[in-house]
Design a binder for these strands. Structure first.
Lengths: 128, 128
DNA sequence: GATGGGGATTCCAGCAGCTGGAAGGTCAAG
DNA sequence: CTTGACCTTCCAGCTGCTGGAATCCCCATC
């Protein structure tokens, strides 16, 4: 199938699919006219990557996961390890954002939000 | 003062400070030898930006905040509005990450993590 | 005056992960 | 034979820096 249909079926923009090929994630077959020719298995892999990306895995992590996905002799421990590493990253990112939220919330609470120039938010940013 | 000291006093790398100038965030004075010459007020602004960035404001948002910071006739409502917009973004990012965390956690829980190839994590990615 | 070191300057390139656009080739329908 | 929807490649740009190269400046020491 052409890239357009692979795009429709994977949910990924054609541009993105080409990009994934460019960085060596997947290499679909080519027809005589140089059009890319995607097989069912390619679409599966595209969806696989799409979901991994949606879970926040980086492209490099996706590359690794894809290698494990293709490798019928993998051990699930390797997959789990990668997933746990990523989960830890997500959690620390959440903690970071929550800290931002907390601080910002505090500043906003202290601000009247009227037409006068006094502003605890700016003051807070100027000297924490 | 030279950029080196401004860097030390603001906590921002000199590279970053030059970058901020390049994109028009601030324009310090110059000496005869073309060295940048930072005043106290510049350092204040650099710290201001540093803190805003630490709270996750984008550069464009920082530009806006800086304009408000400089404007003695601003109304605090404008600042508050910008802060609230940003807070909403942070919260939706947190929600997104929590959803990722939840999903990933579920997959990891289901995975034995042994040396066998069966892996619910990969299966989950392959077909959610 | 030469030299050495630690500044400073500019500009160019690259990171992630796409996305948009230009310039052109291909194919089926009318 | 033309139209329009596809496909191709390549180049540029987004955010927010960061690294490096080549060069210049200032000050101290010999």
């Amino acid at each position: 199938m052409n890239i357009g249909e692979a795009s429709r079926r994977s949910g990924l923009p054609a541009k993105t699919i080409r990009y994934y090929e460019q960085i060596g994630l997947m290499t679909p077959a080519r027809r005589d006219n140089d059009y890319r020719d995607y097989a069912e298995r390619d679409v599966h892999e595209l969806r696989f990557v799409a979901r991994a990306r949606a879970l926040g895995f980086s492209i490099e992590e996706c590359r690794r996961l894809l290698a494990l996905y293709r490798d019928r002799t993998r051990s699930s421990a390797d997959v789990r390890e990668a997933a746990e590493r990523h989960l830890a990253q997500i959690r620390s990112k959440i903690a970071e954002l929550r800290e931002m939220e907390r601080t910002l919330n505090r500043l906003i609470d202290a601000c009247h939000g009227d037409d006068k120039p006094d502003c605890p938010i700016l003051d807070g940013l100027a000297s924490e």
